[in-house]
Structure formats: C-alpha cells, structure tokens
Amino acid sequence: MTSVRSLKHGVNIGIGPFTVLLRSSVAALEEELARIYADYPIAESGSFVDFHIAVARPRGPRRWLRPQAILDFDGERPFAPSPLSQAFLLFEAGLNWLISERANQYLMVHAAGLERGGRAAIMPAPAGSGKTTLSAGLASRGWRLLSDELVLLEPEGGTIYPVVRPLSLKNDAVLLIQRYFRATVLSRQYTDTAKGDITFIKPPRESVLRAREPARPHWVVFPKYVAGTPAMLEPVSKACAFFMISDNSFNYAIHGRQGFDAVARLIDACSCYRFTYSSLDDAAATFDALAAAT
C-alpha cells in the first residue's frame, strides 16, 4: 500500500466515505498497514481530508526505554501512549474513536453490516455476541462486508454507507476463523490488551473496492453466539427492534426527531429477527436461506 517514506510525509487512505490522512514513522505500523490495508484506495495529496491522524514516537526516554507510540489528531491526544509494538492497535482504536465522535452526519449504530443482492442486513449486538466472527464467516461466503462494528445510516434517505475496516477478533475467535477459511490474511496477535488478545483480519478485497457503494437496509438481525445451540432465527416485534437499534446507536440522542424518524424508517424497511447460533456453517446457511426467501 505504502512505504515508510511516504507514510512519514502522509498518505490519504480512503476508508468508506472518509479520507484519512495518516502520518507516521513507526515501522511496526507501516508493516501492518502494508498487510492489512493493502487493498484500500490512496487519494491524491491535496484531497479533502476528514481525519488527520499522526502516530509518532515520543521524545525523551520513552523513545528508547520500553518505547511507546503516541496518537495525535490535530494536536489532540485523547489516548494514552501505547507500547510501540501496538501502534497499529492504537491507530485502529483512534480511528474508531474519531468516526464515532465526529461523523454525526450519520446515524451510527454499533452493528455489523453485510449485503447481498443490494439488500443489507444490520446486526446490532453488544461486544462478545460473536458478531465479528459471524461477519467474517458470512463475508467468506459471498456476502459483502459493509462494516463489522459501525453501521453508518444516512438519516434522511435511509441508505447505509459502508465503512469497511479490518475485523478485530478477540482471543480464541481467530482460531475458529483460521479453521473456517484458510486464505485469510491476519495481523500479528496483540496480547494483553485491555480487551484481551486481539488479531485483525484483512477485510475482503471486493468489499474494500466497493466501499463507496451504498446499500439499502432489508433485515435487522440481533445475533448471539450460544455454544451448542442450533441456528435459530426468530421474529422480533418492530417496536422492540426499534428500541434495540436506538440502544445500540452512539448518537441517536444527538439526532433528536431526525433520529427517531430515521430509526422508524429503517424498521419500516426491514424484517426483524433474533438469531442464535453456534456453527458458522449453519449460520451462513440460515442467512443464505433468508436472502433467497425474501
């Protein structure tokens, strides 16, 4: 994707609807970017930039003694420094934070999003529900990944804008994904983070290349991994789904009446389900049947 030299001067990375200007001279970050962000478009210098991010090594003893990386957004440093070896993790967390804090032109829902045949499934779920694993599994079976973490809904028109990012797998989930599809490109494993051990999956190339192509919502599915259970899809009332969507939105309250209307339109447009599963194969078969039936 880029080189240390160009990264030092700044590279404009197209990430969904956003352009991120990243500057860094941290080799560990550059190595991971080259592997995980290999398919992302690079915008020309001078393009409009949504987010300016710098990942640097601090001055002073922490440049050499247990070296650290620091994250800078236009002079703002909302994150504590991380070990230098975790610079990529710091960049990912920082970009998540920036988008969720500043992209309030969208209604943002903590959810995975996948699309097939122009119709999108939105899957809101709290951390630990297995939505990233499910997203990775479906993305390997012909569904286009829109996001594994943050669905951006345009409030007036109800369109979903993809924001395809590396998929972040916690702890043993990576073993499951490696068994499920072997061609996956993985980051190194980041151990002992606040969220446990984290490994990133390079997102599917086709999803990255189609990241400027919006989708229409068609299903809302609340997934939950429950060990040993068969895949089961059960209808959820639309009023309950409304509440679960608004509960999982970062900025529903900020949008006020417009947020209410946006969620109501979303619910109008979607069939709503609760989904429990334990096998990715069964889950993929259930989603394929859903796409074929409706």
């Binding site: 009332s237 639309k238 009023a239 309950c240 409304f242 006020g256 009446r257 209307d261």
Partner: peptide
C-alpha cells in the same frame, strides 16, 4: 410538547421532543 409516534402490530414508540426521550408503549 411535540410528540412523534409510530405503531407496528399493536405496539407503539413515542418520541417526546421536550425531554428528548423515546418511550415504548
């Protein structure tokens, strides 16, 4: 206050623009 509401299958959600709260009925 200005209320917005939507109903589906006998259940209703109401938005109250004075309190900025949404209620499930």
């Amino acid at each position: 206050r200005k209320l917005l509401w939507r109903s589906w299958d006998g259940e209703t959600v109401v938005y109250d623009d004075l309190s900025d709260e949404t209620h499930y009925l």
